[in-house]
Design a protein around this nucleic acid. Structure first.
Length: 510
DNA sequence: TCGCATATCT
DNA sequence: TAGATATGCG
């Protein structure tokens, strides 16, 4: 696959340079966007108000490759402008919205082959924009094949958190692929066009890996050979060698996973889980909470970091409500695990449903799946190795003390956590969880607000002490499961990041 | 053509 | 620098 760098671009394009026009009424925003584009692409970037832009477009029509604007414009209707420019000048348009309004996506994408960003552009988006312009330009002059792959690279690189855009863009890509495939069917995409040239490095995007996994599923593990996978994947330009290489890595990951699962199962599955469960279930508060039809449960949506996801790895998270105000009965330390399948984060609850499908089964009792306690789950086979996955741990009944608090005051707790991968600590930290009185019978009144880190004043004064330093990656086995629990129980105080969470958004009734 | 070891790249 | 990807060989 063609990997675009500015050097290559300049070479391949000869004297022709990319020209991008940024149009925005706000001069500050205009300057920022233009500067970013210039910084990332080194190509000519013009910045103008819409009034000037129209004449510029007329003037430089042949040189312009990309038109960047904002559909939320104060004075003018952004969509009308898009339509006008597209019709008149047949330009590629990149539109964006500062608001995450999904309803606007289809409108933003009505233009032919355009991009739409749900949110304002990020640095990564900028880095990709000029590649898009380049790919488009190149598509005009050369075969569609490379540019279609480039398009996807760009899409991948520019995604950020805009998952909806990902879907839409991919749909668009698929269409393009189909079209280009029809026209280039005769050309064998896997053959080298120039024998002595080094093969371009393939970037295995989420999308490609997904197809790869789908192909393996279809063929079955025994018959999943590179050639067959390649055929099923049907990705122009992809070679059998690349697939073979990817398959090798994939199998290696699976093998490691199996081993890890076995060793981790023995540690977590028996000793630690049992011990913790006994503690939790012996608590009357916990039982009350658990039996409540309202099910007051706090969910920590996203731990304050993401992890590098490996297929088959088992991630676990041990929580410890460290301290609280007004509310007694904290101190349940519980083991919680999450499952992180392809492209998503799912809760332990989801994992139950998915377990039979594409996750490796992992022995958990029914009670576990309901509470989220003691669950161990595995990254499913479709997980893209090395991708950053947001940990999305639901703590479920982790904080029964808080949830069943009798106090009319807001309550909060410091929660220490230790993340482990395959039994090995990968991070420790803590966060603050707080909510209003949610004593029995009151539901939905929880009000946790995610607070920017900078607002230090909003962080309750009561400071826990230092959490244990487990960052050295010691094995659970080294410490012994019991020892590990005690270390966490000792966790106190820190200046590390603290978070509030809006649990209303994440409350899921049983 | 496959799978593995290892080189190369990023 | 490690992890991702390419390459060479039986």
């Amino acid at each position: 696959m063609m990997k675009v760098t500015s050097f290559q671009t300049r070479q391949s394009m000869g004297n022709k340079e990319i020209c991008i026009l940024v149009v925005h009424d706000d001069p500050i925003y205009r300057n920022i966007v233009a500067k970013m584009l210039q910084y990332c692409s080194h190509y000519e970037v013009l910045k103008q108000t819409i009034e000037d832009a129209l004449s510029t477009i007329r003037e430089k029509k042949d040189r312009l490759n990309l038109f960047v604007t904002d559909i939320h414009r104060s004075n003018t209707n952004g969509f009308e402008i898009l339509q006008y420019i597209e019709k008149e000048f047949k330009l590629d348009i990149m539109s964006m919205s500062p608001y995450e309004n999904r309803k606007l996506v289809p409108i933003g994408l009505t233009s032919n082959g355009n991009l739409y960003f749900l949110k304002s552009l990020s640095v990564n988006d900028f880095k990709s924009l000029w590649q898009y312009a380049y790919a488009k330009e190149r598509g005009k002059t050369t075969s569609d094949q490379d540019s279609s792959l480039l398009d996807e690279n760009m899409v991948q690189a520019s995604l950020g958190n805009t998952s909806l855009f990902r879907e839409v863009a991919r749909g668009d890509l698929k269409l393009k692929r189909r079209e280009s495939q029809e026209t280039t069917e005769q050309n064998d995409a896997t053959s080298d066009d120039s024998p002595n040239e080094k093969r371009q490095r393939v970037t295995w995007t989420d999308w490609m890996h997904h197809k790869f996994v789908e192909a393996i599923k279809e063929l079955g593990p025994e018959r999943a050979f590179p050639k067959k996978i390649l055929e099923l994947m049907n990705v122009p330009g992809l070679t059998r060698e690349s697939v073979a290489s990817h398959l090798q890595k994939y199998r290696l990951g699976m093998r490691r996973a199996e081993e890890a699962m076995q060793s981790t199962a023995s540690v977590f599955g028996s000793k630690l889980t049992t011990q913790l469960e006994q503690k939790c279930f012996s608590s009357s508060h916990f039982a009350q909470n658990f039996n409540s039809s309202q099910g007051h449960h706090l969910y920590l949506n996203q731990l304050p970091h993401s992890i590098s996801c490996q297929p088959g790895s088992i991630y676990s998270c041990l929580f410890h409500p460290e301290a609280s105000t007004s509310t007694s009965n904290l101190g349940h330390e519980q083991l919680l695990t999450g499952t992180y399948p392809y492209g998503h984060s799912v809760s332990p609850f989801d994992a139950t449903a998915r377990n039979t499908e594409n996750l490796y089964g992992f022995g958990t009792a029914q009670s576990n799946s309901q509470t989220g306690l003691g669950r161990l789950a595995q990254v499913d086979s479709g997980c893209v190795p090395g991708t950053q996955v947001n940990l999305n741990c639901e703590t479920g009944a982790i904080f029964p003390g808080i949830c069943n608090g009798r106090s009319s005051n807001a309550v909060s707790a410091y929660v220490g956590y230790r993340l482990a991968c395959n039994g090995k600590s990968i991070e420790t930290g803590q966060m603050v969880v707080s909510c209003n009185d949610v004593s029995a019978g009151v539901s939905g009144s929880e009000s946790l607000v995610q607070t920017p880190l900078a607002l230090g004043n909003d962080i309750p004064q009561q400071q826990p002490s230092q959490p244990p330093d487990l960052s050295g990656g010691r094995d659970l086995e080294d410490l012994g499961a019991e020892g590990e629990v005690h270390r966490l129980l000792d966790a106190t105080g820190s200046t590390s990041p603290q978070f509030f969470w809006n649990i209303d958004e994440f409350l899921v009734p049983f």
